[in-house]
Design a protein around this nucleic acid. Structure first.
Lengths: 201, 201, 201, 201
DNA sequence: GATGAATGAGTTTTCATTCAT
DNA sequence: TATGAATGAAAACTCATTCAT
């Protein structure tokens, strides 16, 4: 076996470890996860984990960055395009849902961490910067809309993201099919509580 | 000291322990919280915790029930009233926000737990039944509205609750003032993305 | 049992732990010593060690300070007295030997550490300041003597201390009786190699 | 490459490994030294260490023997010469200091080991026999001197060796220049504490 | 009933040694 | 023969729980 494939095998092993860690952290959370479990699930010895990561915390942090990169990174690219706001938002929705669906493995950790990320003040957890960048970029796009929330882009972005996340979680738990852009777009362009119509007749 | 005041003192101590546990669990999560920290914050010895609760898990569970009772319970009462849907929803919003604002101490735990609760399938965590009841009841009310989501009351309720929670978290983190019913009502009765207006010339 | 004797018991336990640690460290050195051994020898559980000391390193450091205090401290008091140099040195010798003999338990560690202490440059080990103070004070006294080494008090002190230490080690290993001041005084006031006499006849 | 130079290269590699091991053991002691460090410092892979030595202990033991051979061995040869005692001692001093100075690389380990060697009883460490032989031989020579210590050759030798070692350590730490025979000879032929002269008016 | 020190099982982490390439 | 990644036994350290006072 040449050097090339050695490197490839090593990279593969690293990925397997990350996958195992992801699944254990997703199930048990940071404190509940045990290094032995991760090793066992990755099919390696405990010591091997320390060949790739300096410790449990490093493994977790790496995972968060991986998650952020795979999900937020891709979405950010869309949000930064020069385009009319509505088509842009529609594309954002499509890409975001695709990114979430294609990365169902990391969804649990992603959603959990996104939630935790909002409590920056309470917990001194390191929020992957990409998440903040994502919210900012989304907020900027949304601020171009004629809407009372436009003056508060952070809150506006949080709400839109919250609606998408909620729908995805419901799907993740098997209570509904995975949402498509076609499903969610009406949801965002309609009031949740249709006051006027309800008042009609 | 008579029997009466002894009992009162004991109840008071129990409450202090719960308050301390709440604040520690909110900061660190279940696994991250240490019994010594809880005891210290309550101003008692570790042993005392075991006079009132059978262990860490019991303490946590009790707390969740307390939270559920103080927040969901109160809201449930409103949702079960016989009343026209819109005024009912308006009252629900008022009471829910009041419950959240008056219990800012437990908000952290509440929100964290509500989030975790959605991952029932993934984690074998005991979800306080009240939360499910709350979502059901809210769904039932919402299903009376003429809205495409009406046929999926669970999802509909989750989305509405998600919007409220997101707004509250933003406030909790100091990024906006605590939302009032007056603030949020328009938010729920307006589309997040006003497609038509945006299309207007 | 009242508070007084509780404190006393605790202090007693602490002393037992230190004694156990001392004996294990003396036998195995810092790296070779295991916390379980120390605990076992002290008749306590491992966890108990951590009630008194923050870790292995702290335990070791404390021990060194203890050693320094019990040996150097007492000797320093003598060296700082105002007195004619020869009687002072004689008293120093008496007290130093007494201190060493009365603390045979810590001698191993003491001597080992004194030796290591000389390699400050090589190893970043924290030398208890008292040892340096002791050498300085001894050097100062010695510098009052008419001797070619008087101009290098540090070296002079090191040599005198080295001779005493060597004699004590020999005794410790059972190769000679524990030296008395009466034994060692002639040794210090006589040349080790009597050149003149040897040249005589 | 012919068989000759292959052998030479291999011997060279072995020497490099020993040099690296020496420097690491000198800095960290036996337990504190890690095989990876030794390998790294030698510029080879860990596995290579095991091609030359059966393990860490073997490496250490080999080193001690090397040290003994390079230092004690050379000195022993002198001490076994038939010659009048004083010139012999003078030559011993010259050779010993030369051996130490020329082998400053192994000095740390040498001194550390000599010191440890004295605690044979306490620690089950394998003392290189050569060191004992050296002390015996030195004692035998010293016993020819008219001196009260002559009847205790082991102690006498230990003291003389101790004085030399102390002076060398001081030099090693940069607190004085490396001692020459000319420096140390007077030191050994003079009392450390000149009682009579001090008494002189 | 309250205390808080002692406990030890359970975790993380280290590192000498092996072995496939 | 040299390599260095994988191994897993062994060590340090943590913390929920107990129990004597």
């Amino acid at each position: 076996m040449n050097r090339r494939s050695k490197k490839a095998l090593r990279a593969e092993l690293r990925r397997e470890i990350l996958a195992a860690a992801l699944s254990v952290f997703s199930e048990k959370g940071f404190h509940g996860a045990r290094m032995v479990d991760i090793a066992r699930r990755a099919g390696v010895a405990v010591g091997t984990l320390y060949q790739f990561f300096s410790g449990k915390a490093d493994l977790y942090q790496t995972l968060l960055e991986e998650v952020a990169r795979r999900i937020h990174g891709r979405v950010l690219a869309v949000l930064r395009k020069e385009a009319p706001v509505l088509p842009l938002l529609r594309e954002f929705l499509t890409v975001k849902l695709a990114a979430l669906e294609e990365n169902q493995d990391i969804l649990g950790l992603h959603l959990r961490e996104v939630w935790e990320a909002r409590f920056q003040g309470v917990r001194a957890r390191v929020l992957p910067e990409l998440y903040e960048e994502y919210l900012s970029a989304l907020g900027e796009v949304l601020s171009r809309l004629p809407h009372p929330l436009s003056s508060r882009p952070r809150l506006y972005a949080a709400l839109v993201d919250g609606v998408i996340a909620t729908a995805v979680v419901e799907a993740l738990e098997g209570r509904s099919p995975f949402p498509t852009a076609k499903d969610l777009w009406p949801l965002l362009t309609r009031a949740l509580i249709p006051e006027e119509e309800a008042h009609a007749p």
